[in-house]
Design a binder for these strands. Structure first.
Lengths: 219, 219
DNA sequence: TGTACATCAGTGAACGCGCGTTCACTGATGTAC
DNA sequence: TGTACATCAGTGAACGCGCGTTCACTGATGTAC
């Protein structure tokens, strides 16, 4: 970890002081909508549960009257749709894969960045995977992720870097195991501490058949 | 599935009608405490999140004044301690292991029953693994589970039914993957449907080195 | 055998809180004439 | 260049709700004398 983690897309600093905000210019009303989404995402990440997100808390965080949120979102449920998180994660993964030398390294990077994103956005990960929101929406985005993982594995097999097998099944197993790893890291940090990287390598080796990168500069 | 799943320890029927309950006999005041714990466990399972559990809801479910809960539990946090769930799960696993022929079959049964318990108590599983309670307590019980899994794997290795390796690491990998499987089954039932049994077999084969039971009567 | 008292197992009303949501409104800014 | 009007970007007060928690209490039952 340290400096190499993906850039946090949701600002961390605390709530705005009331009165600090000034009304948007005429024609710029949509900016408040943007502020609401950003604040909602930050609160979801901080709280880790969609039921804990409230219209009033979002309004408070922005420094706006609760009523103003209703101008852009008809009710609480509408606030809780978070497609942009996935888009952000997808971009991070795409970027990491680009710089990989071969398909096996690409899969390893993809897997690592997935785990790291979850680690640095624990609350959002929980909302996206454990909350009641995820039952309502987000499935197309998750299917997209699953298909991309299967494609990455398929490329490994085609390049002879992994033994043959059904990419969809292997991807399902890998994603399931990685989800377990991330979930335990987030939910039981005291018992599942540091060895994420090694466990990822073991999963890649045992579930996909990709041996740990042997040509490591140090260690 | 079907008839072979473990007996549900927490009664399912709906809330009691108000007025139906009559005061405990003198000296039997502790019975209300028992009722409170049972009702709290049922509510936790129904709601799937400890934050959603309220003193008033528990009192309502039993048919008692909210004040009466305070006689036995000093505050809401005290209600939320759920050691008995683990004890119940442990007993179910012990029972399943007993009837197994060899260590490999015992490990398979242990793994299956773990997944089945989680499936039949989704809310409690979420509370125990995803909720804020689990950060406070329950770690000794989880350590116990981890050690038992490691011991089961150790017995497989000793019996020559699994290739040699560090049982603690193998157990960690297996438990992580199974947790991922269960978590996805609970949280995304629409995408992770039915093939749990096969995926468990694959995890046992790939992560522990135990091939699927070949002498199956049918299929 | 009778009675005063202690104890048990609860109850009912009330407090202040944050919440979702509705309603009528306000003040600034652009625009038609 | 001036003015009436429309529109935009919000606000403030209020509603009813469920919640945790406190307080003084009630009615039944056992027990000492």
């Amino acid at each position: 970890m340290g400096t190499s983690q993906p850039a946090a897309p949701f600002p961390r600093p605390g709530a705005r002081q009331p009165g600090q905000r000034q009304q948007n210019r005429r024609g710029q009303g949509a900016r408040l909508q943007e502020e609401i989404i950003t604040a909602a995402a930050r609160l979801l990440n901080d709280l880790g549960h969609d039921a804990a997100l409230s219209m009033r808390a979002v309004a408070r965080a922005i420094g706006v009257a609760p009523t103003s949120v209703y101008i852009h979102f008809p009710d609480r449920d509408a606030l809780v749709v978070m497609a942009r998180c996935h888009a952000d994660l997808l971009a991070a993964i795409g970027q990491a894969e680009e710089s990989a030398g071969d398909p096996a390294e690409a899969l390893r990077r993809r897997t690592r960045i997935h785990a790291e994103w979850a680690r640095s956005h624990p609350g959002l990960y929980k909302v996206l995977h454990e909350s009641t929101v995820n039952q309502r929406a987000e499935t197309p985005l998750k299917n997209d992720m699953a298909q991309r993982t299967a494609a990455a594995i398929s490329r490994c097999i085609d390049a002879g870097l992994a033994p043959p097998g059904d990419p969809a099944i292997i991807a399902s197993d890998l994603r399931t195991a990685i989800h377990g790893l991330v979930s335990l890291q987030i939910n039981q940090p005291q018992t599942h501490r540091s060895d994420a990287s090694e466990q990822i390598d073991r999963f890649l080796a045992k579930l996909v058949g990709i041996p740990p990168a042997s040509a490591k500069p140090n260690q």
